[in-house]
Amino acid sequence: MTEAALETVDVTCVFQVGQGFLRGSKPLRAVNGVSLKIPRGQVVGLVGESGCGKSTMANILLGLQRPSSGDVLYSGNSAAGFSRRQIARRIQPIFQDPYSSLNPTKTIEAIISQPLRIHNVGAPSEWTARVTEMLDVVGLPRRVAASYPSQLSGGQRQRVAIARALVMRPEVVICDEPTSALDVSVQSQILNLLQDLKEEFGLTYLLISHNLAVVQHMADRVAVMYLGRIVEEADSDALFDDPRHPYTRALLGSVLTPDPRLGVPDTHLGTIFPNPIDPPSGCPFHPRCPNCTDICQSVPPHLVSDGDHETECHLYGGAS
């Protein structure tokens, strides 16, 4: 198996959430014991609904958020041995909203060359050349270097964000919903670009998205998150062909492919969304689960491995 470029080992992240004046605070387990491997040169998709802990995971991997427990391994070495700046050279993010991810007071050239300046890479005279090179790479005309973000379209801005992320040649890029704020026709351009760049620079991606069609198109391996836990993880084909966890099945069932002969699917999910501060007992998914049994309400399931296919659900055994 290929070496992991990035790996989390039993990472937990707890926030204290205020309950209002004089009511103290309660712990919110945004990420709850997650172990995830991102093999070098692959695309790992992380899917789940809002509030499931995807973004906290991204922050932890980027070194922006210290986990409460557990460890992050960069190429097999513990995060403790790296400074913020060293992590920054290995891992770079691409955000969802290209309108807020670029500082409106800076020119495109200043934005793309910023990592070089921060990390003192090369002489200032070389920076312009590097910026021009990156503009070519992401397919932007060179003359945008002197313009400001407000002059560009959403797709162009996202290309600038990609150029900024890649100018330091990182190993891993964390793409947090990279296309969901863009128009359909622009979306496909950005996805194509990300594919090309992966080949060209030998990148490793963590693709965080709620758009399963995009994840299936891009990812080699997929992890499904629910309330801070990874409930199913498998190679892309295995997961999409044979989804096991009822939540994964519901997610896949909710994908609306443009097939006019099909109606809107009924996901058979409950309408209650659990409060992450006060998660349900047993399996956290049981209030919404169509296959819920007695054991699901009281005993949390364990991870069951079937080769590379890991599922955390009582339907597949796992109760000790």
Binding site: S185, Q189, Q195, H217, F240, T257
Partner: peptide, 23 residues
């Protein structure tokens, strides 16, 4: 537009998606 979206089962993984260039 129809060529731009990945469709599970129809577009192969990593395949180039269609696009509508320009703005």
């Amino acid at each position: 537009l129809l060529r731009c979206i990945p469709i599970p089962g129809l577009t192969r993984r990593g395949e180039r998606l269609g696009s509508v260039p320009g703005i």
